[in-house]
Amino acid sequence: MQFFLVMLVLCGATALMASPLIWRSGAAGGKGAEEAALEAAKEAKFREIRDAEHDLRTGKLSREDHQVLDAALRAEAIDLLRRLDAVRGGPAAT
């Protein structure tokens, strides 16, 4: 019984590990490092824009400072969107 179970675990583990070599998937799929980095930067930039908005509304940031900061952040965010679209080969805005 023990031997049978050991063989079962051995065969199962081997099949699981070797499966990508036996049944090759044709799908390219998956994000490259460039796209992942841009995604992360975009999410962080969006969060920064929202945080600046929150800081303005809670009185931590003056309206003048927020205007300058928000314009800069939005410009950076648009740049990231452009670069993301270029990496993905997706639709471009005008």
């Binding site: 600046a52 800081d55 009185g59 931590k60 940031l61 003056s62 400072d65 900061l69």
Partner: peptide, 14 residues
């Protein structure tokens, strides 16, 4: 504190 810069008046208020 705000990110990047907190105004003195804002800090005092907070």
């Amino acid at each position: 504190m705000a990110w990047r810069k907190t105004t003195l008046a804002g800090a005092r208020r907070s």
